[in-house]
Computed example of a mutant assay.
Amino acid sequence: MTITKDNVVQFNYTLKDEKGEVLESNLDQDPIAYLHGHSNMMIGVEKAMEGKSAGESFSATLPAAETYGEKVEGAEQRVPVKHLVGATKVWKPGMTATVNTDQGQRLVTILKVGKFMATIDTNHPLAGRELTFEIEIKDVRDATHEEVAHGHAHGVGGHHH
């Protein structure tokens, strides 16, 4: 079965930067599952998967506009330190943190930090970069009626209700 709209795709990946250094990988974890054609995946990754089949492995080098977006200059914002979420409570410039917004969680970079307020860059830390995804497609199946109605994959690697 080749990947088309309304298929649930399960895959593992390794993400590399412009120098070929590994930024993240889920090779030793359960595959990610997503519903193809429903804007649940980066546009570049989804386009690269179109027409592929289970068992295929491939590499796709994608421009920033098709992954985390172009870097927006001046995307700085001051937020209370108590709104920064992460593995630490001692924040320093250059660290990444998560902030909760009206649109959901957002990964940000800390530029300056004081006792009560922090200046953050709201661009995703990987915005503006050409990235390479090495992908291994584990499974492709037709989505259930419920998955299509909900707009996302269910089960392992997908959404759990």
Rank of each mutant, 00 (worst) to 15 (best):
M95C: 07
L107P: 02
G128A: 04
G94R: 06
G155L: 11
M117G: 05
I135Y: 00
K138S: 09
H159M: 13
N100I: 10
M117V: 14
G157R: 02
N26K: 05
N12F: 12
Q77P: 03
G55A: 03
H159S: 10
D121G: 04
A75H: 08
N40D: 09
Q103C: 08
T2V: 10
G114D: 06
A153V: 07
K47M: 14
D17K: 08
V81D: 00
Y34F: 12
I43N: 10
E66S: 13
D139T: 15
T119I: 03
T2C: 12
K112W: 08
T119C: 04
T88G: 05
L62S: 04
E66T: 11
T61Y: 03
K52F: 09
S25E: 09
E146S: 10
R78P: 06
S25D: 09
H159D: 14
K89C: 09
F133A: 00
M95G: 03
K16W: 03
K89P: 05
G51L: 08
E18V: 14
G20V: 04
L15F: 04
T98G: 06
I135M: 02
M1Q: 10
A48I: 07
D142C: 07
G114Y: 04
W91C: 06
R106H: 11
V108D: 00
H124W: 02
E50A: 11
R106N: 09
E56Y: 08
G37R: 03
G86R: 02
I110A: 01
K5R: 15
H124A: 01
A33I: 07
Q29C: 15
G128E: 01
E70L: 09
D6G: 02
E147H: 05
G74H: 07
P125K: 00
N100Q: 12
V85R: 11
A54F: 04
E134N: 12
M49L: 14
I3V: 11
A118H: 02
K16M: 14
H124P: 01
L111Y: 04
H161E: 10
V45G: 00
E146G: 09
H83C: 11
V81H: 00
S39R: 13
I135E: 00
V108C: 01
H159Q: 09
K138I: 11
E130C: 07
D28L: 12
T109K: 12
G151F: 03
P31F: 00
G94I: 03
D28M: 12
S25H: 10
V113G: 01
H152D: 13
T132K: 00
E136H: 15
I120S: 02
D30G: 11
G86W: 03
T4S: 13
L126I: 07
D142Y: 09
H161L: 12
S59E: 05
A75F: 14
I120K: 01
T109G: 01
K16I: 05
Y13C: 03
L27W: 13
A143H: 01
A143D: 02
